[in-house]
Simulated assay, not measured.
Amino acid sequence: MDLPTAQHPADQLEIRLSDPGEVAAALPQLLGFHPAESVVLIGLGGPSGGRVGLTVRGDLPPDGDAARTARLLVRSLHSDRPAAALAVVVSDEADDPAPDGSVADLLPHRALVHELVLALAAAGIAPRDVLLVRRGRWWSYDCPHACCAPGAGTPLPGGVSALAAAAVCTGQVVAADRAELAERLDAPTGSGPGMQAACLRAAAGRAARLQEVGRPALVEESWAAVRRAVARYRPGAAGQGPLDDDELAALGWALRDVRVRDRALQLALGPDAAAAEVLWTECTRRVPAPLDAAPATLLAVSAWLRGDGAMAGIALDRALDGDPEHTLALLLRRALDACLPPAGLRDLIGRAAEPDPQA
């Protein structure tokens, strides 16, 4: 299940609910990729009741699993305390034959829609509408008019929506699907042997340095190396190319130290947040397991704080693939599954940086 959030800029954008098709057309911006065979719940709140909040997505369930899927999705959405919700079924499935044998067919996935409405009502969330999106058109399951007949539907709005424009302003690049989003973390072609050798050299050098200066000094040296690397990825940084294998391998080993990694978490809250996220992405792509677990976890935090829950989930999957026992990644996975909002994560990181008054 993907748990992306429409935070900046969507948390400041009022969606005109008089046109549900506009919301349906904006699903790729809300999710970060074009969904297929999916069910999506969009939380709505704010003074007008039309502000987009948390958005959750799941695969369409197999027969007999509709009730469980609906409960899981609604439970996740409820963590954001929305006043209402818009449910969207994205599917290319054909219409269902009418059970009484009449000529009129029915929109597909009605059993799932029924369970979604029941689960939303049980959670005290008003179901504003339930839509089907199929092959460039949308339908409302509750609409009695001819335009909502299974063979009709309404074309999705053309042009650039407000959410799409906001996404462009923030540099969001929408993936064709979730698999393409995950491919953004794939290792570059031919990077394996050289990086493996670099990691061995970095391990030997770190062990020797530990014997020479001790752990506290090594932590400070490692943190200084992280700061220098982040500076090289700042927008507009001149005269400095990307890190080579040896530099990235050294960072991978440095971030295995929880004291260095926890300092690096704070970068997501400061002016170097964007540069740090680029660095974590590069480390995740190029360093091998288990060294990729720490930068992947840092990448998940960065993505989560800017509202990209889909990438946060993918990065956490990568971290736990590299190190299934990685403590921070496991904690963040549970928090993401519980739909901790970005503001909650920001508060936790900020409080973790405060000095202990008892120390």
Rank of each mutant, 00 (worst) to 15 (best):
A121Y: 11
G344Y: 09
G239F: 08
S18N: 10
L345P: 00
S302G: 08
A310I: 06
R71H: 12
A25I: 02
F33V: 11
D337Y: 04
R135F: 00
H8E: 12
Q172S: 11
A231I: 02
V56K: 03
P288S: 04
L44S: 07
P288V: 02
L218G: 09
G241E: 05
I42C: 10
V260C: 09
A300C: 03
G313P: 00
V23G: 11
A319N: 00
D100E: 14
A26S: 15
A83T: 10
R334D: 07
P99G: 12
G194L: 04
G236A: 12
V89S: 04
V173L: 15
D96Q: 12
R57C: 08
R318N: 04
A303I: 03
Q172V: 11
T281E: 06
R135L: 14
G313A: 02
S79L: 11
G171D: 03
A254S: 13
S38G: 11
L60I: 11
E282I: 01
P9C: 15
H78R: 15
L163E: 14
D257G: 10
V90N: 05
L120Q: 06
A26W: 08
D129I: 02
P288Q: 06
A6H: 06
W138M: 08
A207G: 10
L332I: 05
P4D: 03
L120T: 07
H8R: 14
W280V: 07
